[in-house]
């Protein structure tokens, strides 16, 4: 564990909690892409199957359980409890255009042609594009609630910090995972546009609104 990964995991946890809390408190999922949240639930489910096969540490196991349970709770709130507030018209990204190519790529490019490893690879590739429906929805509505932008900032920051974690681990441990690094780079690049808007608008107290 290193400082970058520690802050990154904390930022990821913060993002998940911020979103769950926002939906629960406001009793509304307006402006939230349910499709992205379903993709994140799939990401965690396919990545953390090793909960059943290997134990790494109490931290590792407990965080995985928290991530999985919060992501399913979020999907439940969006599609069941507060379904009336779900904005399906603007959450119209065709996720099959993400899942199918990512699934194919995971079968073609992986570290080991074993089921758990292919599922892990699928999860890594899927996570890198899972935020697209949410970003697409914001571009369609032309705006985002400030709390939603904080959620997105924490979510984007987490994988950006993982890039520094991989630099650290390569330098100090010789650890190197090309699949995770490339996917993490793609994932972080997808947030750049949002990061720019977040820093120039939200941090200056303005509302995030895209030129309609």
């Amino acid at each position: 564990m290193n400082i970058f990964r520690g802050i990154a995991d904390f930022s990821h946890l913060a993002a998940i909690i911020i979103l769950l809390h926002k939906i629960w408190k406001s009793r509304s999922c307006a402006g939230i892409s349910g499709k992205s949240q379903i993709l994140f639930a799939i990401v965690f489910t396919t990545r953390y199957l090793d909960l059943l096969t290997s134990f790494i540490s109490l931290y590792n196991t407990s965080m995985k359980v928290i991530y999985i349970s919060c992501s399913y709770a979020t999907v439940y709130l969006i599609y069941m409890k507060f379904r009336a507030t779900y904005d399906g018209n603007h959450d119209s990204f065709r996720v099959e255009f993400l899942v199918v190519p990512v699934g194919g790529l995971a079968v073609l490019i992986n570290h080991d042609f074993a089921l758990l490893e292919i599922l892990w690879t699928f999860s890594i590739y899927l996570e890198s594009v899972a935020i697209l429906p949410q970003l697409f929805m914001i571009s369609k509505t032309g705006e985002a609630e400030t709390i939603t932008t904080h959620y997105l900032f924490c979510l984007g920051l987490y994988r950006a910090l993982y890039l520094f974690n991989w630099i650290w681990r390569f330098y100090f441990e010789g650890f190197f995972d090309m699949i995770a690094i490339v996917a993490g780079l793609v994932q972080t690049v997808l947030y750049c546009d949002f990061f720019y808007l977040y820093v120039t608008k939200v941090l200056k107290g303005k509302k995030l609104s895209l030129p309609a």
Binding site: H12, I56, N60, D177, A180
Partner: peptide, 10 residues
């Protein structure tokens, strides 16, 4: 590439 057989990251 020295990716870990068991993935120790979240």
């Amino acid at each position: 590439a020295d990716e870990s057989a068991t993935h120790d990251e979240l």
